[in-house]
Amino acid sequence: MMQFVADGIVSAALIALGAIGISMTYNILRFANFAQGEILTIGAYFTLLLVSLIGAGIGTLGPVAFGWPLLVSIVFAMAATSVVVLVVDWLLFRPLRNRKAARITLIMAAFGLSLMGRNLVTLIAGGEPQYYAFFIPKAIEILPGVRLVPDDFAIIGIAIIAFAALFLFMNRTSMGRQMRAVSENPTLARINGIDVRAVIRWTWIIGASLATVAGALLAHNTQLRPEMGFDMLLPMFAALILGGASNLYGTILGALVIGLTEAIAVSLGLAGYRAAITFMVMLIVLLFRPQGLLGEKE
């Protein structure tokens, strides 16, 4: 049972890392970014490229089956993915914003981009599954009769560090305050002298960086596939809506509920129905709290 809970929390951590970018684009750029899954995929493949370039495998850290080579690769992949995302914004979303495109136009542009991105990854990297390294996860006994995989702890630890860093950034830095200000009232933010374009750049950078972490850790735990990000899209949006689309921390809570529900479904032998069970839980919560767990009423 403990392993299922750990699996649920790992799954929640990966969903939340990816969904934060959707939450930020939704609140600051005001559209649902259906291409977030592909950002996650691109981040994972950039990490693969960098692991290959470094040529030292993925290393180990004690009992954890990955180490500094993978972590360093992830950091560089975060930068590379951010650059790609900023270029795409410059080429596609910025002109649409400047022409005051309708929200549905931005959403459809993101949807088209998602298809394009997935096909481009398949074209460049091939459609076959790939791996950072081959390893057999070894569970260790942490309590009598309770065995857990060390990598799960490492993934949860990395996610907690990322969330803490995000929290500090949003609350303790000037840019974080500016992002919260733009999210709440873009016109007042402009009046106040906030450069909304800089805020938008940071929104993409943070969203892409966290998605890269999610993609790389997901790929380490499973495999790299061009569809890996797209498969995460539904749980990520479910986490966003369940937590309350207007609340960044609600997204993390929503991801936790989604991840744990999936894990419980699997532990009950209902693995084939886990998506249906997860969405049923989401719908039940929304019936009682339409604004989501931490969202505010319109």
């Binding site: 305050r177 919260r180 200000a181 016109t187 007042l188 106040n192």
Partner: peptide
Amino acid sequence: YVPQTENVFAKLSVEENLALGALH
């Protein structure tokens, strides 16, 4: 410039509102 309505960042604290004023 202080607009007529929605002239504070309601979710931010008073101190954070003041800090945003001194951005430049």
